[in-house]
């Protein structure tokens, strides 16, 4: 994963991506977000852009959390908007159609976003 220390983005008890929660709810379920519709995207992508390239996918894994641990996730189970559907969006937030940000792979997508592919190092956090 390179030499970058991603701990600040994968260990805080509070989500490092609060605006992305809004953006994901808007995209996944048409839930209205504060301000004009484009604002949620702008703020979420800004937050993601502030995370070092090497750490973006890790931060997204941490943000969505494990399927079995809704208490340790930046996403909320909502009526008509299952957390599972929101998780599908989190894994593609860096792609060209959304924030278009390069990652540790030097491309605008993340790999190994399925829970079973997460490495041990990340699991322990």
């Amino acid at each position: 994963v390179g030499s970058e220390d991603c701990t600040p983005w994968t260990a805080t008890p509070i989500t490092p991506l609060p605006s992305c929660r809004d953006y994901v709810e808007q995209q996944a379920c048409r839930i209205e977000t504060p301000g004009p519709p484009y604002l949620a995207k702008q703020q979420c992508c800004g937050e993601l852009a502030n995370i070092p390239q090497q750490c973006r996918c890790q931060a997204l894994r941490f943000f969505m959390g494990r399927k079995s641990r809704p208490d340790q996730s930046g996403l909320m189970e909502l009526p008509g908007c299952p957390r599972e559907v929101q998780m599908d969006f989190v894994r593609i937030l860096v792609t060209p159609g959304f924030c278009n940000l390069t990652t540790v792979h030097n491309t605008p997508y993340c790999l190994a976003m399925d829970e079973w592919q997460w490495n041990r190092q990340f699991c322990s956090s």
């Binding site: 808007q26 995209q27 996944a28 048409r30 008509g80 559907v85 599908d88 969006f89 792609t95 993340c110």
Partner: peptide, 25 residues
């Protein structure tokens, strides 16, 4: 990653079609 994207094809921001869950997901 194409697989990850394809999972959201039915959702409101994409094709916005209802599914077996009677919702667009």
């Amino acid at each position: 990653p194409q697989r990850d994207f394809a999972k959201v094809l039915v959702t409101p921001g994409q094709c916005n079609v209802l599914t077996v869950h009677n919702a667009p997901y």
